[in-house]
Amino acid sequence: MRKNSVKNTRINGEVQRVLAETIRGEIKDPRISPWTSVVSVEVAPDLKSCKAWISVLGDEEAQRATLEGLKSAEGFIKNRIAKVINLRNTPEISFVMDQSIAYGVSMSRRIDEVIARDDESARKREDTGPREETHS
């Protein structure tokens, strides 16, 4: 099976969906942040391994704790995927931290700050606009 085949793409989507549902609603580990998202999943063509890119909104401690919680729940997650998705092999999952959502939030905040500064300096220019000179 080619890496980009329709079947592999469908399997990636199904594993991502089941993984997200499992993390969101079935794992009770307090280390796992409620702000955890499954950004992307890539299942190997032989179905033996899977990389799951995870994004956690929060500080580095929350991200580290979430990764630890997910790694300790790997057996449960693999079992859940095996029950929901009928695959020849159930892949071993490795979690990778993805910073794209946090980066997007940070960039959005910076853009908002720049716009606010521009608006404020435009208002100041209007308030202290050119003064008319009066000739007596």
Rank of each mutant, 00 (worst) to 15 (best):
E120D: 04
R64A: 15
L70C: 08
V6A: 09
V84H: 09
R17S: 11
I23P: 02
V6N: 07
R131G: 02
S108D: 15
S37M: 06
Y103M: 08
R17G: 04
I27F: 08
E42I: 05
R64M: 10
K124N: 14
G104S: 15
V96F: 13
W53T: 01
M1W: 01
E14G: 04
S55A: 14
I77C: 09
S55D: 12
N89P: 00
W53I: 00
P91I: 10
I81A: 04
V56A: 07
L67F: 04
A44D: 10
N8V: 03
V114G: 00
R24I: 05
S121E: 13
T66I: 04
I101S: 00
P91W: 08
D29K: 08
D29Y: 04
V41K: 08
W35H: 11
L47G: 07
V38F: 01
T90S: 11
R110C: 00
V15K: 06
K48H: 14
A73W: 02
I32P: 01
R123W: 02
R2M: 01
C50P: 04
I32T: 03
L57Q: 13
E42N: 13
K48D: 08
N86Q: 14
T36D: 11
P45N: 14
S49H: 14
V43M: 14
N89S: 09
L19I: 11
